[in-house]
Nucleic acid binder design. Structure first.
Lengths: 253, 253
DNA sequence: CAAATAGTGTCTCTAAGACATTATTAG
DNA sequence: CTAATAATGTCTTAGAGACACTATTTG
């Protein structure tokens, strides 16, 4: 892993024994996204200790003797009061790792950021210090501690992009859902009003995106309209053909 | 960052002071890809120390007081003899982070993997221990140390995917290149023979993918054919419309 | 009833891919 | 000369998007 020619003794030892290098703290932070009232929300916590005491931040904590993924699940469960059972319905994927020196004023901390998508999560419980954790609409931009604003931005871009090529949107709705509910997810994440008719035909034409349950909703919409058919997630890992965002010229160059 | 309700004193301290948790070693490993003789090659080094002594591995090393990206650049430069100047022509991006307990038998090591694309890199210099670093064609599959086989796989999939949506292929060719050279990159990475005529028209039709230099090659191909026009990289960040792989049904589900 | 919504039909335009064709060069 | 390759042309078909339209439900 390290070269042995022409290196100092400490470098040689380091190649042999990792403890010869200054160790670092490794944390897992989570960008947890859900949709409430037709708008995308992110889970934020208010820091109770310095640095950045009182500032909003992504939930996170130190990686212990578990896997990185498990550490992220643990932090998510702690802040949301989610039971292990509920975690099955939450999509969790690695987003990226942020380790610029100085990003934490206390010491060198490298954080592995994760992205979580959930159809619905309970409000963080009051009591303990969980009243300092809230689902925040993304439109209400806040200052975030550390480099969490950058991590959140990267997470949003990843989410928007994955809606195009994967059936990820089904992670934001319940077990059974209507095409309209699915469209509401795209509308919220992309912040665009998609055309209802074209979207409907498109979703049904992508193999494996959704499969019919044969059922319909009990009632029509709150302001009228027929009952909608219910679908569940299909077996496709990728959407083909993809469901591309209406691209804006300025984002291409 | 951590909750304070109902936690042990050590946990409270850890929330305040990261050093209360057991530190970990952080390394940067590089999946460096280039194209030689029309085939994709990856840079591998032979380990001179245990564990996995004598086994092939991805180049990598410990992150020091620099940024993760800088650590990756340093490792790449060390193994290839690349000068800082040459690094400008190398595309380097973060691939993912691998930290399963036990992936390094010595201690807990979390590695941040990077993906590098280069048009051409010198053979690792003989002498020192660089003779243990070689460009290896991907067809010649080897056993790799640690979880490097998995990292390499992930890197390959990332590379194949990014050729579709980004002008990344231009990172594998020289400053000025012909459409045929560009097609050879796609052929090598995707392991498919693309149709020359359709590829040609497609590349020129994507805005900002390539721009003409007005020049042509000095000679035709080695076995005949007209001189080819020369192009350089355009200003597009994303290819639109994308250049999709002929998708195989079994990879979608 | 009117308004809203689910779902379908139709038309146009773009783009992908199969294939053919012409021009230019090496040997 | 022949073989190979660059570059362009033609045709077919799939798919995206604009828009219209029908059916069904709520209030």
């Amino acid at each position: 892993m390290r070269k042995t020619g022409g290196m100092s003794e400490s470098e040689f030892l380091a190649g042999y024994n990792p403890q010869a290098y200054k160790p670092m703290a490794v944390t897992a932070d989570v960008v947890a996204l859900t949709i409430r009232d037709g708008r995308l929300h992110v889970l934020l916590v208010r820091r109770g200790e310095p640095p950045f005491r009182g500032a909003w931040a992504l939930p996170g904590g130190f990686v212990r003797d578990d896997d990185l993924q498990e550490a992220a699940e643990r932090e998510l469960a702690e802040e949301t009061g989610l039971l292990p059972h509920d975690l099955d319905r939450v999509h969790l994927e690695q987003l990226g790792t942020y380790g610029k020196p100085g990003r934490d004023p206390r010491m060198r901390v490298v954080t592995v950021a994760f992205l979580a998508f959930a159809p619905w999560l309970p409000d963080p419980k009051a009591g303990s210090d969980a009243d300092a954790a809230v689902w925040t609409p993304l439109t209400a931009t806040r200052e975030l501690a550390f480099d969490h604003a950058k991590i959140l931005d990267d997470g949003l871009e990843r989410a928007r992009s994955k809606l195009e090529y994967t059936p990820l949107a089904t992670s934001f709705v319940g077990e059974e859902f209507t095409i309209s509910e699915l469209r509401a997810v795209y509308d919220a994440v992309w912040e665009e009003q998609l055309h209802a008719g074209n979207f409907h035909r498109k979703v049904l034409s992508v193999p494996g995106f959704v499969e019919s349950t044969g059922m319909t909703t009990e009632r029509g919409g709150p302001r009228g309209g027929p009952r909608a058919r219910l679908y569940r997630k299909g077996d496709a890992k990728y959407l083909h053909p993809a469901l591309l965002r209406p691209s804006r010229e300025d984002e291409i160059r």
